[in-house]
Design a binder for these strands. Structure first.
Lengths: 245, 245
DNA sequence: CGGCAACTTGACAATGCTCAACGCGGGTGG
DNA sequence: CCACCCGCGTTGAGCATTGTCAAGTTGCCG
């Protein structure tokens, strides 16, 4: 059910930034313990905790979220294979948000000490820094998305982003990705109600921009969807500095 | 017009995280060149550029923003005295957003090389890392704010945050801060139209929660405003690990 | 005094929310 | 094997929030 990509997916992601010396790749491999499987809709780290391990997602979908009184919640980022949940834990002792799974996930727990070993390698340190900065850039783009785009474009934009990110780690084939997410969760992501989310989705389907059934999202016309949603992949800073430099 | 706090304000901010060794403070001072003044509503760095210097705001208000086709824009963060504009420039060559002043600002330009000197000091490196993480946490909180709060609470929340941040660097006295921002800019911050922003402001005034005139914001009842807006300062991770640990 | 930018106001339209009900399908227990 | 239940998706109707347009008003500055 859950892909066993393990360290491959992380390596693949880090090398989006730049190639790593063989010794670093080796180290990366050593650091990866055996993974475990976490059921869907389960917290990996909860707000207020002070996690001791860093968690790496190697399969499935997870998210960062905050719950407000009244029970409403807002998902503030998605974690896909290759993403870390807790890199800030070195500096900020207490989590100011929760991390939970959306689908069933494969998770690797890495003790802080091992991360410190990684950071001692300059190339790895830079790569991990890059990861953190891309996360930040993504969250800025989400702000634009939620603040300034209407419902259909908002959802379309999210789909474009997820496709780009999954493609980067080899998890997308011709516009098709696994998206094991309920409409409720989607609504909490884009800041809309479930009902409205449902209608916006139908509108995207009617426009023949996407297909979404049984957790499989197909982007039927990438170029048109990107234009429609105002999507521009710059903020993901992928691509070896080519389009970036 | 613009306060001449210079390095004081940065030091003050960094020591929110933890005290610095005297040698580090000294180094911090050396790194600060003479500042310059930037007019209001002017870009400091534009999207697409690859800045060579890092810019530190020492007076006034600036912001990060993105413009979408159609001319609408979204402000994604505020920069107040003590904030850096460009720390990511070491890793991400091209800016994926612009940084511009809101009011007249005092800005200190710091060459990359000098920042590298700072980062070699462990205590400073950690403090700067903390700064980056708090920025990220803030942007997550903004996501919650824009995604899940109604207009009045949204604006109220922003006001609470700005007050907390300015107070931390000594720029707030009993609930009063300078807020040299037009309603248009405020609207672009909270993701609302100007007209609606105006009405929400009036509603906050009518509820005797705030006062805002001539760029002076007074929070009349901090506790009530915080409750009303769902504000909880945790995400700012201020306070020497005291309330944080 | 004139001009311009920021702020206000009113009226109306569009977007999005809530409530409530129903269908479908997979999983469970009888 | 069937009946039921429950989560998820879907629909309709009415209401609330927010946006747009257009026209003042205010206050500062030249």
């Amino acid at each position: 059910m859950i892909a066993e990509l393990q360290s491959t997916v992380l390596l693949r992601k880090l090398e989006l930034f730049g190639e790593l010396p063989p010794a670093d790749k080796q180290l990366l491999n050593n650091v990866m313990s055996r993974g475990r499987v976490v059921r869907g809709h389960t917290d990996i780290v909860a707000e207020g905790e002070s996690p001791t391990d860093v968690h790496l997602i190697t399969g499935g979908f997870a998210c960062r979220y905050k719950t407000l009184k009244g029970g409403t919640r807002q998902i503030v980022s998605y974690l896909v294979p290759g993403d870390f949940t807790d890199l800030h834990t070195f500096i900020l002792s207490k989590m100011d948000h929760s991390v939970g799974t959306l689908s069933e996930c494969a998770v690797v727990d890495i003790p802080r000490s091992r991360i410190l070993e990684l950071i001692e390698r300059p190339a790895l340190a830079r790569a991990l820094w890059w990861v953190a900065l891309v996360d930040e850039a993504t969250s800025r783009e989400w702000l634009v998305n939620i603040g300034r785009r209407r419902s259909e474009a908002r959802i379309g934009h999210l789909f474009c982003e997820l496709h780009a990110r999954l493609k980067a780690v080899g998890l997308a084939v011709d516009g098709k990705i696994r998206l094991p997410i309920t409409q409720n969760e989607l609504a909490d992501t884009v800041g809309l109600s479930v009902v409205h989310t449902n209608r916006a989705l139908q509108s995207l389907r009617a426009a023949k921009l996407i297909t979404l059934e049984r957790s499989e999202l197909v982007i039927l016309d990438a170029e048109r969807l990107q234009k429609f949603s105002g999507f521009n992949a710059n903020y993901l800073h992928q691509g070896l500095g080519k389009q970036d430099k």
